[in-house]
Design a protein around this nucleic acid. Structure first.
Length: 491
RNA sequence: CGGGGUGUAGCGCAGCCCGGUUAGCGCAUCUGGUUUGGGACCAGAGGGUCGCAGGUUCGAAUCCUGCCACCCCGACCA
């Protein structure tokens, strides 16, 4: 068979770019580092949005929207926060263009300079806390549990479709609480929602844990993250939840009166998950035939393809296909009947495989004769011929089984590529030659983490929540350590 | 910002080293016909400021200079 996609084993980056392009998910735009998300890619994002949104609302959160522009002065109130983001901000300095008198076309009107520059949000903590200041006076106003679906801009030096683009779409939750304990509880609740979403919807096994001080969000007391392993052996941070302490409340002077009439600063959290998840989906499950989308997030779950020689056959097949389609739809399954006659069945088979549609149903003259249908599942590419009256139950079974199977496949891959080592030379060797997760001892200092990063490009992805206490010696410094942490090279 | 690479039809590329009539191939598109159980075949057609600007030359896709864009590898990061 002809090759339509770059081979994944030959060149992982090229395979990834090629797949994003050929599966019609996105393309590079004319704007530096920004991408155009095409309808099919956006449909996947809409599925992610709707499932997450449901989970947020079920835990008492509501949606709101805050401005794209942040006055520079807001942004500089929290010292660590500004330090973390200053290097990658787009800044608006003027508000008008004009025709150049010397005929050089449209130019910025120098007389239209803003008195205070506006930052295009790289994240919204500051503008949101400026509002919260007015919204919160009493313990009765708390907790405040708000989420925003938005775009943000971070002027990264190097970009990559979905994984790191200059502008990206995400959701960011920003909550305010009366007590430290409650805020920490919220931070944990949200990282659990993310990992639940990753595992049960994305079919992506993740490791939950704390970020080390070096990797923490700018302005946070503590950052929790979920980390996933991609098929090329690199780690991908898939979602983060931050305990912000009273940092932003103090910076924006958000105080409330508690039950005892005492004034105190509120406790905050923020948490976010982005279109990067689409990149994770691609890199975790896809193969050399194209995308593999978990059924729960597939914009299209089933495609029915007719195989016919003439109009007469097509109409007989269509009658049956329409019936199957409406029955599947009644069962809550999304279905397309592709009866276009300008492509051959073989072409359609390959195309829907490239797009990652989980289940394909083929109907031809043979099937009409025998009262059968042919099903094919995207994960294993296995085909089966079944009785037509079994189609609904079989498709339902396939969707569930594919969801389960690709999760298990990803988990198996992660297990096989997670190494426990106490030897520095083996540590280096794994990173150089195999990739994957490494569970190793660490002395807990930022200096050691920094040195390991310099020498191997690996960072501490997380200190896993469930990493058991185990006495050992730091892989790098040899100093005593209480538990293993997760190292990997990352995106 | 450093190191490497690429820019030729909608997409993917050859031609460039060693300058020479009309710039070529595959895919895609359009027309007609035959096909259709794994990316069909035949015949015909349309589509190009060879990234941009200069220069050398009788003559430049090809040589020289400058600029621009994109990709990959680093530094940065969700």
């Amino acid at each position: 068979m002809a090759k339509f996609l770059t081979n994944r084993e030959e060149n992982y980056s090229q395979w990834y770019n090629d797949l994003v392009n050929k599966a019609d998910l996105a393309e590079n735009s004319a704007v530096r580092g920004c991408m155009v998300i095409k309808p099919y890619g956006y449909a996947i994002w809409e599925k992610i949005q709707s499932e997450l949104d449901r989970m947020f609302k079920a835990t008492g959160h509501v949606n709101a929207y805050f401005p794209l522009f942040i006055p520079k002065s807001f942004f500089s109130r929290e010292a660590a926060h500004v330090e973390g983001f200053a290097k990658e901000c787009a800044v608006v300095t003027h508000y008008r263009l004009k025709n150049d008198e010397e005929g050089r076309g449209i130019v910025v009107d120098p007389t239209a300079k803003l008195e205070e520059e506006l930052i295009i949000r790289p994240t919204s903590e500051t503008i949101i806390w400026n509002s919260y200041k007015n919204w919160i006076q009493s313990y009765r106003d708390l907790p405040l549990l708000i989420n925003q679906w938005a775009n943000v801009v971070r002027w990264e030096m190097r970009t990559r479709l979905f994984l790191r683009t200059t502008e990206f779409l995400w959701q960011e939750g920003h909550t305010a609480h009366a007590t430290r304990e409650e805020a920490i509880e919220e931070t944990v609740r949200m990282i659990n929602i993310y990992s639940d979403f990753a595992e049960n919807y994305m079919a992506l096994p993740v490791i939950k844990g704390y970020k080390s001080e070096n990797e923490r969000f700018a302005g946070a007391h503590d950052t929790y993250a979920i980390e996933a392993l991609m098929q090329d052996g690199k780690a991908l941070q898939a979602g983060t939840s931050h305990f912000l302490g009273q940092n932003f409340a103090k910076a924006f002077d958000v105080q409330f009166t508690d039950k005892n009439g005492k004034l105190d600063y509120v406790w905050a959290t923020s948490w976010g998950l982005s279109t990067r998840m689409i990149g994770a989906l691609i890199m975790a499950h896809s193969d050399n035939h194209g995308l593999v989308i978990p059924p729960k997030l597939a914009p299209l779950q089933v495609v029915i393809i007719p195989i016919f020689k003439n109009e007469e056959q097509l109409s007989a097949i269509s009658a049956r296909a329409d019936m199957i389609k409406s029955e599947l739809e009644k069962a809550g399954i999304s279905v397309k009947y592709d009866n276009r006659d300008n492509n051959t069945p073989g072409w359609k088979f390959a195309d829907y495989e490239l797009k990652g549609v989980p289940v394909r149903v083929a109907l031809g003259p043979r099937d009409i004769q025998n009262n059968t249908i042919e099903t094919a599942r995207r994960d294993t590419l296995k085909k089966e011929t079944i009785r037509q009256d079994e189609v609904i139950s079989h498709v339902k079974y396939l969707l569930e089984d594919i969801q389960k199977n690709i999760y298990e496949k990803a988990l198996k891959f992660r297990t096989e590529n997670t190494y426990y080592t106490d030897s520095w030379s083996e540590f280096v060797d794994i990173l150089e030659n195999r990739g994957g997760f490494i569970m190793a001892h660490w002395d807990g200092t930022a200096e050691t983490e920094e040195k390991i990063k310099e020498e191997t490009k690996a960072t501490i992805r997380v200190i896993p929540f469930d990493s058991p206490e185990e006495k050992g010696n730091c892989i790098y410094s040899g100093k005593p350590s209480e538990r293993r942490v997760l190292f990997a090279r990352s995106y």
